[in-house]
Structure formats: structure tokens, C-alpha cells
């Protein structure tokens, strides 16, 4: 009899076990879904002496790990609880962690060394009237823009961008970095190519690889080695003339949005 009662109890436990398991598994469990990439507010991505990086902590128990050396942050990485200062150029990587959710993907922020500021910029073509930025010197004003293309620091072209920059005296320029926005859903693509005319003598041509990713919005740049004493550089930055087949506007022209030309 006792044996029989025991078996019945055990069966009930098994049954409740199965039922409990079914109820539980119908709901999303901890660790099944990723966190969204962390948002980091940067005072400026061009470093003069230092810049500040501030995480947005939007959930209880959320932590943001970061690495300065290009490594992917892990749970063991230094946690960013509040604003920090950065003095070195490079790629800073951030990742969100939370006990209920899978770690996020990585947010990368590139910090640049502030460059030489040309004394003059003369435009040969005009930005679109809706996206003139802060005026003619926006691309050499030592201010980077955000990911939002309506940001006043973006200068938007629906045609080729041509300008000449000049320095008061010959300046050794190691490289030129042209930073731009990639936002395919808003028809904003990287430049197709860049041509530089150095001191009215030498020419440098650079072609930028065609975009293959469809969704990602990001700040990007192209760094062009120069290694010369420079008094003038004429720049011709070509926008994409035909959007690719995968894009909703295939065959039409792309927008080109630039926020800074950095002469290091």
C-alpha cells in the first residue's frame, strides 16, 4: 500500500514537473535575446588635449564594458559607470552586459588626433541647400557630427564636392582623413572616389569600395597618405552616381555627407 502511495506521489511529481516545464518554456527566458548596442556620448571625436565619453545607463543592473586597444569587451573588461576622459586617438569599443539578456554587439568609436586647420577653403561646387552644415568652413571646423544626417555638422552633396584648401605657409601633411556618413536607408553612401591635387602638381586618386551592407548606419572615414609639404590641396570627392541593385533607389544618385577633413 505504502509502495503504491509512493508511486502515485512520484507520478504526480513527474506530472507537475512536465506541466511546470511547459509553462515556463512558453515564456522568454533569461539570456535568450541580445541587448541593444550601448549608446556613448562623446564630447568630440577630435582630440586636442582630451575628450569625454559618457555611457547611457538605461536599465537597472546594466553595465557597459570597454576596451581601448581594439579588443572586444568581455564581462571582465573595465566597466564604464560614468564619464571618462580619453587622450589617445584610436578605436574605443563598448559592449553592454545585463544578467537577463545576452551581451550586446560592440559599439566602436574612433577618436582622431586634431589636425592642422587650413587657413582658407574655396568651394567650386555647392552643398545641397538643405544640408549646408555650419557654412563653408564646416569641414575644417574641428567638429564631428552624430549618426543623424540632419545634424548641423553634416554637409550633404547630391553631386561632386570640389574645393581647394590652402595653408598660410607650407605645412608638412602626413595624411588626410575624410570622414563621412554611411546611412543606406536614407540614401547616404560613402564617396565613390577621391582625387587630390597637391600644390597644383601631384595627383592622388583613391577609389572607395562599393557598399555591400544594407542596414548599418555608421560614421566612417578614408585616410589618404600624403607625406608632403603642402601649401594647397584641391579635393574632388565623387558621390555614388548609381545606387546598387539591392537598394530601393537603384540606378539613382546617392547622397554624400561629410563632416570633417582632418589634415594630420
Amino acid at each position: 500500500m505504502r509502495k503504491f502511495i509512493g508511486i502515485i506521489i512520484a507520478m504526480l511529481v513527474f506530472s507537475s514537473c512536465e506541466k511546470q516545464q511547459k509553462e515556463v518554456t512558453s515564456f522568454l527566458q533569461q539570456g535568450e535575446i541580445k541587448l541593444t548596442n550601448p549608446r556613448i556620448t562623446v564630447s568630440n571625436t577630435l582630440i586636442d588635449s582630451f575628450v569625454t565619453l559618457k555611457p547611457e545607463i538605461h536599465m537597472e543592473k546594466l553595465s557597459v564594458g570597454y576596451e581601448e586597444n581594439g579588443k572586444t569587451p568581455t564581462e571582465a573588461s573595465t566597466k564604464l559607470h560614468t564619464t571618462i576622459s580619453a587622450t589617445k586617438p584610436g578605436i574605443y569599443k563598448f559592449r553592454a552586459f545585463h544578467p537577463d539578456w545576452k551581451p550586446s554587439e560592440v559599439t566602436s568609436i574612433k577618436l582622431y588626433k586634431k589636425g592642422h586647420i587650413p587657413n582658407k577653403i574655396t568651394w567650386k561646387t555647392s552643398a545641397n541647400k538643405k544640408y549646408k552644415g555650419q557654412g563653408e568652413t564646416t569641414l575644417i571646423n574641428n567638429q564631428k557630427a552624430s549618426l543623424e544626417f540632419r545634424d548641423i555638422e553634416w554637409v550633404g552633396f547630391d553631386t561632386i564636392a570640389k574645393a581647394t584648401v590652402s595653408f598660410n605657409r607650407k605645412t608638412y601633411i602626413k595624411s588626410l582623413t575624410i570622414s563621412y556618413l554611411t546611412d543606406p536607408k536614407s540614401w547616404v553612401f560613402p564617396p565613390a572616389s577621391v582625387t587630390l591635387y597637391l600644390n597644383d602638381k601631384d595627383t592622388i586618386n583613391v577609389t572607395i569600395p562599393a557598399l555591400t551592407e544594407k542596414e548599418i548606419v555608421k560614421l566612417d572615414d578614408i585616410k589618404i597618405p600624403i607625406e608632403k609639404e603642402i601649401s594647397t590641396i584641391a579635393l574632388k570627392v565623387n558621390n555614388v552616381q548609381k545606387l546598387p541593385d539591392w537598394h530601393a533607389g537603384k540606378g539613382l544618385k546617392a547622397w554624400l555627407f561629410m563632416d570633417e577633413w582632418i589634415f594630420n
Binding site: V13, F14, Q20, Q21, V24, F27, Q29, Q30
Partner: peptide, 23 residues
């Protein structure tokens, strides 16, 4: 009852998977 608990392979996790693990 304890034997039943042990014999059910995911029982301990089923209980620990209670409300606490539902996000």
C-alpha cells in the same frame, strides 16, 4: 518524493526556471 525529483532530469531546473527566469 526526493527520488522522483532526482529522476526527472530537468526538474531542478524546471523549478529554478520558475518566475525568476522569465524575463
Amino acid at each position: 518524493i526526493s527520488l522522483g525529483l532526482l529522476a526527472c532530469p530537468s526538474l531542478s531546473s524546471a523549478f529554478s526556471l520558475g518566475a525568476n527566469n522569465d524575463v
